[in-house]
Amino acid sequence: MTIHSVLLAEPRGFCAGVDRAIEIVEKALLKFGAPIYVRHEIVHNNFVVDALKKKGAVFVEDLNDVPPGATLIFSAHGVSRTVQQEAQARGFSIFDATCPLVTKVHVEVAKLHKEGYEFIMIGHKGHPEVEGTLGQIDSGIHLVESVADVASLRPAQTERLAVVTQTTLSVDDTAEILAVVKDKFPTVRQPKQQDICYATQNRQDAVKLLSNQVDIVIVVGSPTSSNSTRLQELAHRMGADSYMVDSATELQPQWFVGKSSVGLTAGASAPEVLVQEVITQLRLMGAVSVRKMNGLLENTKYPLPKGLRSSS
C-alpha cells in the first residue's frame, strides 16, 4: 500500500437543507414521541435513515401506510400538490421538511404557471425532487434529462416558456443542456437565480480543485444520493480515479495500489462521522498526513417550521 496523504475537500457533507430536515424529524420525535411518519427517506443517506428509524421514525412511500391522526413529515426533496392535498384531507399533523431552495422552485413554477407559462425541467426522471416539482402543476411541464431530449421537445407555445432545474444536478451538465435549450428556444426564460443550490455548486467546485491535486478521490455518500453521485462523476471527468462509498467498510485496498495521495469529500446528505471513519481506515492503510483544502465556509441556516421551534 502506498497511501501517504489525505486531502479533505472544503466544503463537504451536510448542507443547511439537510441539517434542517434531520432536525425536524428529531424535534418531532422529542415533542410528539414515536412513531413519526416521514414521506420518503428524509434525505438520501442510509446511515441517517437507519439512525432515525432506531429513534422511531417510520419512512413510507404511500400515505395509505400512515395511520389516522399521525404526525407526518415531508422529506427534504419536496412533494407534489396531490400528495400535499391528500395529506391535508386525511387530517395528519404535517411538518414540511422540503429544502427551502426546492420550495423556491415550486413557488416559481406556481407563479409563472398562473401567468400562462409552460416549463422545461432539467432533471432525472423518477427522482423524488423532480416528481415533486413536476407535480406542482397539472400539465405544461416537460422533463429533459440530456441534450438529446431537447430535440424532441414540442411545447404548445414558445412565447411563455421557462426553465427550472433539479437542485442537485451537475453544474456543467446543466449548463450544457441549458445552452441547447436556449439555442432552440431563444426567448426562453431562465431562472432568476440558478436553481442548482449553493451547496451542490460549492461541493462540485471543491471537487474540481481537489481532483487536480490527488491520485484518487473517494466520495462518501449513498447510491440514492444525486448530489453524491454527481461528485463521483465529476472527479472521474477531471481525470482522477474516483469511487463512492456508503461507509468505510466499502473501501477496497486494490483501489489504492500505486496511489500516494487521496482526496476525500462527502455529498450534502452524508454526515461527517462517516468521513472520519473513512479517515481512520485510510490511516490504517498507511496515510500519515491528513489536511484540509482551503475552501468556502458555509454559514447558511434555515429556520424550523412553527410548532418545532424552541420557543414554541
Rank of each mutant, 00 (worst) to 15 (best):
L284M: 09
S260T: 15
S242V: 15
E250G: 07
A270Q: 05
V275P: 02
L264H: 03
F256K: 04
V262G: 02
L297Y: 11
N294F: 12
P253M: 11
V278C: 05
D246R: 14
V275Y: 05
P253I: 13
L284I: 10
M285S: 05
A268L: 15
G286C: 12
R283C: 08
L297P: 01
R283M: 08
G295L: 15
G295T: 11
V278L: 07
S242P: 02
Q281D: 02
R291Q: 10
L296I: 15
R291T: 14
G267I: 15
V262D: 00
V257D: 04
A248V: 05
M293K: 06
T280H: 07
V273L: 10
A266C: 10
T249W: 01
S260W: 03
S289F: 12
P253G: 05
Q281W: 03
L264D: 00
N299L: 14
L297D: 03
G286T: 11
R291G: 10
T249Q: 10
A248Y: 01
Q252F: 10
P253Y: 04
V257K: 11
L264R: 09
V273E: 01
Q281L: 14
L274I: 12
Q254R: 03
Q252V: 13
A270D: 01
V273T: 12
T265K: 03
A266M: 09
P271D: 02
R283N: 03
G295M: 14
Y243S: 06
L297S: 11
W255E: 00
W255Y: 04
M244E: 04
P271I: 14
P253C: 07
L274F: 12
L282I: 13
D246L: 15
V245W: 03
V278F: 07
V278R: 02
G295F: 13
S261Y: 03
T280P: 00
H236D: 02
Q276R: 12
M293Y: 06
A270E: 01
V245R: 05
R283Q: 06
G295C: 13
D246S: 15
P271C: 13
E250K: 09
M285W: 09
G258W: 05
V288H: 06
Q254W: 06
A235W: 03
E272K: 13
V257S: 11
T249G: 07
S242E: 02
G295P: 02
E250C: 10
Y243I: 13
S269Q: 07
M238T: 09
L274C: 08
G295D: 01
S289L: 15
S242I: 14
G295Y: 10
Q252R: 07
N299Y: 11
Q276H: 06
S261Q: 04
G239P: 05
E272W: 09
G239K: 10
N299K: 14
L284W: 02
V278W: 03
G258N: 07
A240W: 01
M285F: 09
A240E: 01
G239E: 02
L264W: 05
I279F: 08
M285K: 06
V275H: 08
Q281H: 10
A235V: 15
M293S: 09
R237G: 05
S260E: 12
T265L: 10
G267P: 01
L282H: 06
L251S: 02
V288T: 15
S289K: 12
S247F: 04
W255G: 04
E298G: 09
V245D: 00
P271A: 12
G267E: 01
T265D: 00
